[in-house]
Structure formats: structure tokens, C-alpha cells
């Protein structure tokens, strides 16, 4: 686990749940303000820190882009964003709210992992604080 854990039992509960899913390599949580992160799984502390920073930056960017989209085309069903996914040929990173999950495509199911994350995190505040 990271040395600066985010104190959120619900988030750590979903992180633990994700790690039981097939193909999940690592999962974790980051603070929106960027000063803390925690994780579990097969990543080094430094790599988890880098992953947290990239996930946070992308989440903040998408939030800004979603707000711009909503200003220009209101009531689209896209705003506010709940998360995002980047899929590579072998691995996928999935982020909902401030929780990230890294999994192997050959073993993991995005539909199942996303359903698990959304069930746990959909009610989380959309305020990025």
C-alpha cells in the first residue's frame, strides 16, 4: 500500500474488491488535490505514484472538457463525467471518480470491472475536492 494512504474506507473497500477480480493487476485511489494516494497490487510504490498522477491529470482534464461541452451543448448526458478508460493491446486502465484499476485484457472484463466500480462509486460527490 502507498505510504500516504487516502483515508476512505469505502474507496479502499472497492480497491480490495477489485483485486479479487480476474486479471486485475493493481487498483488504488488518489486525492483530487494531488497530495495523497493509496494502492494495492503488483506495482512498485513509485510506479503507483506515477499512475496516480497520470490518472488524476486525465480526470481533471476530462472534467474541464465536460464542462466546456456542457456549456456549448447543454443537457447532453455526458456531463459531469463519471470516469474514463484507456485500452491498450494488452492492458487497460479504468478510472471512476478517484479510483483507478489496471487490468490485463486477456483475463479481465471491462464490463464486469466497470459495473463493480460504478456500483460502489456512482453516489460519490462529483466535486473534485
Amino acid at each position: 500500500m502507498g505510504s500516504n494512504p487516502v483515508e476512505d474506507n469505502n474507496a479502499m473497500s472497492i480497491v480490495s474488491e477489485l483485486l479479487t477480480r480476474p486479471g486485475v493487476i493493481a487498483a488504488g485511489e488518489y486525492a483530487y488535490r494531488g497530495d495523497r494516494f493509496s494502492y494495492r497490487g503488483a506495482l512498485s510504490e513509485e510506479h503507483a505514484r506515477i499512475a496516480s498522477i497520470m490518472c488524476r491529470a486525465t480526470t481533471m482534464g476530462i472534467s474541464m472538457e465536460g464542462a466546456m461541452l456542457d456549456a456549448l451543448c447543454p443537457d447532453s448526458g455526458l456531463h459531469p463525467p463519471r470516469g474514463w478508460v484507456v485500452r491498450g493491446p494488452g492492458q487497460t486502465v479504468c478510472v471512476v471518480a478517484n479510483v483507478f484499476c489496471l487490468f490485463d485484457n486477456a483475463q479481465g472484463s471491462l464490463n464486469a470491472i466497470l459495473a463493480c466500480m460504478r456500483e460502489a462509486l456512482d453516489n460519490r460527490s462529483q466535486d473534485l475536492i
Partner: peptide
């Protein structure tokens, strides 16, 4: 990168 997905509201 093969795909990018935005999960909106």
C-alpha cells in the same frame, strides 16, 4: 492505445 472511453453521467 487502441481505444479511449469517456464515461459520462
Amino acid at each position: 492505445v487502441q481505444a479511449f472511453t469517456l464515461i459520462g453521467f
